[in-house]
């Protein structure tokens, strides 16, 4: 693959260019070491598809999702308005993000504050790119492998996106196996609603351990995720059961990038 540089909107504007699509990286995708790998995979796929994309870099701020869910509407709206102003300054029309929480907030909660953009989750975009032949998956790195997909609450129930990630897995020639709780019945990983940032309340178990039980039962080689927060929770769950040798947790974008040998 040809070398490429990930450019910022500011760079492009200075060069008098306009990006086709903004890649919204999100806080986890920017700072979390594991999630950075997902971010890179997405960037490589966008590049391979010949899309002219850019990021906001240091001008991106948290969408405000965890503040809103935790009840701090002031903080949420301040961040949202700041972001909307930035996005409008760059005349952004289309956004792709690898984080379902950013996706949900940008898509559903920004319009009422004046931010109207076409927002796609990376699984939807990748699926479109595969369908239109802009990218294709060669070889059979995952042929016949048991892959189970963990539905992120903010893609699935929140936005009714169940099929795009599954269609991608099928295109990998993998054997898609479902956990006992999936799609609309999928069990949360335990991170949403700002739980990621606090200790759990007293109880019998952590939610991610309960979810790890479901994963083990499905007996997959790979658990596919589509959210950087699910990624953290699921990996911890797998580790809790000492199964990290047997079960890999990978983002859909990583699976596609590795099948494309990017």
């Amino acid at each position: 693959m040809s070398e490429f540089r990930v450019r910022t909107m500011a760079d492009m504007m200075a060069a008098g260019e306009q990006a086709d699509i903004l890649f919204w990286v999100g806080c986890a995708g920017s700072f979390d070491e594991r999630a950075q790998k997902i971010t890179k995979a997405v960037a490589k796929i966008l590049h391979a598809a010949n899309l002219k994309f850019a990021i906001l870099g240091s001008e991106e701020a948290c969408t405000g999702d965890p503040a809103k869910r935790a009840g701090n509407e002031f903080l949420f709206q301040m961040l949202a308005m700041q972001n909307i102003a930035t996005l409008q300054a760059y005349e952004v029309k289309k956004i792709v993000t690898a984080c379902p929480h950013c996706f949900n907030t940008l898509k559903n909660e920004y319009p009422e504050l004046g931010g109207n953009f076409e927002v796609l989750h990376h699984t939807t975009l990748i699926n479109q790119l595969l369908q239109s032949g802009k990218i294709s998956i060669e070889g059979g790195a995952f042929k016949g492998q048991r892959i189970t997909y963990h539905d992120s609450c903010y893609l699935g129930r929140a936005n009714d996106i169940y099929e795009a990630p599954r269609e991608i897995i099928e295109k990998l020639d993998a054997a898609l196996v479902e956990m006992k709780r999936s799609k609309a019945n999928g069990l949360c990983c335990g991170a949403g609603g700002a739980q990621m940032f606090k200790e759990a309340e007293n109880g019998k178990k952590e939610v991610n351990i309960e979810r790890a039980d479901d994963m083990l039962e499905a007996n997959p080689a790979v658990v596919a995720a589509a959210c950087p927060f699910c990624m953290t929770m699921l990996r911890d769950g797998v580790k809790h059961h000492n199964q990290e040798q047997a079960i890999e947790v990978k983002d859909i974008a990583e699976l596609v990038a590795s099948a494309m040998e990017l």
């Binding site: 920017s30 890179k40 490589k44 990021i55 906001l56 240091s58 701020a61 903080l75 961040l79 990621m196």
Partner: peptide, 26 residues
């Protein structure tokens, strides 16, 4: 988390200037 978001625009204590550090390798 709130004060991180207020000060660094992220729920963790990272500097906004480091947001694009992941691009360095690419």
């Amino acid at each position: 988390m709130f004060s991180n978001m207020e000060n660094n625009q992220a729920p963790w204590q990272f500097s906004p200037m480091d947001r694009a550090n992941w691009t360095q390798e690419l």
